[in-house]
Structures are given as structure tokens and as C-alpha cells.
């Protein structure tokens, strides 16, 4: 078990094939379809292929199995070029999986000074301050163990689920995915107060931590 996963996505249903072997995934898929096909019917279906070495023949078999249960696949998602080529040969749309940023973090000692830019496709942790004029651009989350006074961009370029944490959150400009905000001018006094910024209902909001 475990070679097939089915999950709901905003666009419909995703059937995910994984593990090392295509034949095992196919067997399992058949077993699942025999028992629960009615739940899937009528949905737009994306087939995500994570099994390596799936060629035209294997892919055709999978699609045939789905079809025999009355399910038609709208597109194929795979990071393997061979799979995308196979999809193309079978006249299906295909694309690379997206939005799954590596969960690695770049750790940098601050301060990030004016004119300096730290960017990384994953998350970024700054130990120290981000000074005015400094810039941090992360594909993932941003955490600043210090004062964040420069420009910060989390979830670059378009992932609005990312968050920005700082012991003192006073950026001159803040971006999360496609959203952008310019906090009010002027430094706030007082002790450090850890805060987090995230997107809620299409707006960047800031909340105290803890």
C-alpha cells in the first residue's frame, strides 16, 4: 500500500502515483477504483506521476484503467521529462509540479546591511538585524532573529502561504507572494516584540507572537 494517494485540490482531484514501480502503482490504483470510484466521478482529475521510468506504455495503461472506470484525466503533472513526453505522445496536457519549495533554509548572520541582498529559493533565517536598505528575498518563509527594517519578500514569486517572523518587525516594504504592503513610517520604541506577518483574505496582516 501507499503507492497511490488521492487528494482534493482547489482544482479538483489529484491522483498521485509514487514508489519505485509502475506495475505496483497500477495494481493498487485498480483496487482503489474498484472500491471507491463513485466518489471520484464527475471531478476534474489531475494525475501526478512520481514513479520514475514511466513510459508511454505504462501511462497508457494507467489512463486506460481510469477510463474503464469512467474517469478521464485532464492533465499530467510530473517532474520527469520522460513522463511529460509520454503525456504529449498520448495527446495530454502536462506540466512540472510547482509550488513545492524545498524546505531547506539558508541561515545567515546579520546584519544585512544597506545595499546588501540575501536571496534563496527556500526559507531564510537571519541571525541579527536587517538594516534599512537591506533586502531579504525568500521562496519560503523569512525569520529574522533581530530587527527587520529593510525590504522583505517571502514566498517569492507567488506563494501567499508563506510567513515572515521577526523579533521587531518594521520593514520599509513587505511582500508575501503577490501581496505587498508598506508599513507606516517611523520607528516604534519599546522592547522587542516578536511578530509574524501573513496573508489573510487578500491582505498582509501582522500579529503578535506568543
Amino acid at each position: 500500500m501507499g503507492a497511490v494517494a488521492i487528494k482534493g485540490t482547489p482544482e479538483g482531484i489529484a491522483i498521485i502515483l509514487r514508489g519505485e514501480r509502475a506495475d505496483i502503482a497500477l495494481q493498487e490504483l485498480e483496487a482503489i477504483l474498484n472500491s471507491s470510484v463513485s466518489l471520484l466521478e464527475g471531478n476534474r482529475i489531475t494525475l501526478e506521476v512520481k514513479v520514475p521510468a514511466v513510459g508511454v506504455d505504462e501511462l497508457a495503461k494507467v489512463l486506460g484503467t481510469l477510463k474503464s472506470h469512467g474517469l478521464s484525466v485532464e492533465k499530467i503533472v510530473s517532474d520527469a521529462e520522460s513522463v511529460r513526453k509520454a503525456a504529449y505522445a498520448l495527446g495530454l496536457k502536462s506540466e512540472k509540479s510547482r509550488g513545492v519549495k524545498p524546505d531547506f533554509a539558508l541561515v545567515k548572520r546579520g546584519p544585512v546591511r544597506s545595499g546588501q541582498k540575501v536571496s534563496y529559493e527556500g526559507s531564510i533565517v537571519i541571525i541579527g538585524d536587517v538594516n534599512p536598505g537591506g533586502e531579504v528575498i525568500a521562496g519560503g518563509d523569512v525569520m529574522v532573529w533581530g530587527s527587520l527594517k529593510g525590504i522583505v519578500f517571502a514566498g517569492a514569486p507567488d506563494d501567499h502561504s508563506r510567513r515572515i517572523y521577526a523579533l521587531r518587525l518594521e520593514p520599509s516594504l513587505i511582500k508575501i507572494g503577490p501581496y505587498i504592503a508598506r508599513p507606516p513610517e517611523g520607528a516604534r520604541e519599546g522592547p522587542l516584540k516578536p511578530e509574524v506577518a501573513f496573508v489573510q483574505e487578500g491582505k498582509i496582516v501582522v500579529e503578535e507572537l506568543g
Binding site: 545595499g115 534599512p132 537591506g134
Partner: peptide, 16 residues
């Protein structure tokens, strides 16, 4: 002054 400190910060970054 804010502007002088900002420029100093820039220079320190370049020196580093």
C-alpha cells in the same frame, strides 16, 4: 543622522 548612518552601513557592507 539617519542618512549618514545608512551610508555608513552601506560602506561597512562593502568593506566586509
Amino acid at each position: 543622522e539617519v542618512a549618514a548612518v545608512r551610508d555608513a552601513d552601506r560602506v561597512i557592507g562593502l568593506l566586509e
